[in-house]
């Protein structure tokens, strides 16, 4: 690149060829650093998915020796009429949506409390982000035992005065239990995002509102929330990307049960693959999930680009 920088001054003789060659060399020197990461990512993430598509067209169950033949779209037909698969899909939507929305509400509340100077603010913030850092597997197990246990759990003890002392949360309300643990884990993430948004708010705007005599609620709905919109959208988007793949919490807490009451798609497909040994069907499920994700993600990615890129970059 250093050579091309000085080239025009030295060689004005061949103006037709040099710029193109120069541009090409320049282009490659810019592209080359990108290639290792790009190739690695394609090999590890895209190649397996091509095999998934291939498997999904075959009848392949490890427990049936006669399987392994081409099956066309049979797996897809089976999966799309499988009530358990559809139930798991519904659960995925319910768990993801409720977790993300409740976490966001809690996160906004916590962030509002933290957006002022007070004694021990740093310590409080440190405490509040801790649930996000604890291994999710441990979080799920601890909620299941020390919190939700109907006899010795802390929650039962606290809720006894309200007549909810002996509810067996995990078996009676498995989805609620899973969402609770997930909300606890993800609220700090939302809080951090919203807090960053609050702190980027211009003081002058806030004060202008106060001078105009807006009350606290008016300030919040007319000034703060519109400003936070971008951060809230981002939080919902990123939260959804992460939470939709939730596996550990369900594995540790309910094993998708009772029955398949709290299975989501990752857990159900895991069961079909590693406990049911039906490679063909689970591959078909995987492909369907990816198609569904692409539809949702295409909409979401527009948002991401609006958020991530500066206007100038987005146009180029």
């Amino acid at each position: 690149m250093s050579a091309t920088a000085t080239a025009p001054a030295e060689r004005p003789a061949a103006p037709a060829r040099t710029p193109r060659a120069r541009r090409r060399a320049h282009g490659w020197s810019l592209r080359a650093p990108l290639l290792p990461a790009l190739i690695f990512t394609i090999l590890v993430t895209q190649l397996p998915f091509l095999f998934t598509i291939f498997y999904s067209l075959r009848s392949w169950n490890l427990l049936r020796p006669d399987s392994g033949t081409f099956a066309g779209l049979d797996n897809y037909a089976y999966v799309l009429t499988d009530a358990q698969f559809l139930g798991a899909a519904l659960n995925t939507v319910v768990i993801t949506a409720s977790c993300v929305l409740i976490s966001m509400a809690v996160g906004i509340g916590l962030a509002m409390l933290l957006d002022r100077k007070f004694l021990g603010r740093g310590v409080v913030r440190t405490l509040l982000i801790t649930p996000f850092l604890i291994i999710p597997v441990a979080t799920a197990l601890l909620w299941k035992t020390t919190m939700f246990d109907p006899v010795f759990g802390l929650l039962g003890f606290v809720l006894t005065p309200f007549g909810l002392g002996d509810v067996n949360w995990v078996s009676q309300y498995p989805v609620v239990s899973v969402v609770t643990a997930l909300v606890w884990q993800w609220s700090p993430f939302m809080m951090l995002l919203v807090l960053a948004g609050l702190q980027s708010q211009s003081r002058d705007v806030v004060e202008a509102g106060q001078v105009d005599g807006a009350n606290r609620w008016q300030m919040f709905t007319n000034v703060t929330l519109p400003h936070l919109r971008r951060y809230i959208e981002l939080g919902v988007l990123l939260g959804s990307i992460y939470v939709v793949n939730t596996f550990d919490t369900i594995y540790m807490m309910t094993q998708g049960g009772p029955g398949t009451a709290s299975s989501n798609l990752p857990f159900y497909i895991y069961q079909r693959t590693f406990l049911g040994f039906d490679i063909g069907q689970s591959a078909a499920m995987g492909v369907i999930v990816v198609i569904g994700t692409i539809v949702v993600a295409t909409l979401a990615l527009r948002l991401i680009f609006r958020t991530f890129m500066s206007d100038q970059e987005a146009k180029s």
Binding site: T41, T45, Q46, L47, P48, F49, F51, T52, Y55, I241, V244, N245, F247, L265, P266, I269, Y270, T273, I279, S282, A283, M285, G286, V287, V289, V290, T293, I294, A297, A300, L301, I304
Partner: peptide, 14 residues
């Protein structure tokens, strides 16, 4: 970023 949206269950079998 789209690879982050690829569900892990869709690639774990291969």
């Amino acid at each position: 970023i789209s690879t982050k949206m690829l569900p892990l269950v869709a690639v774990v079998v291969p």
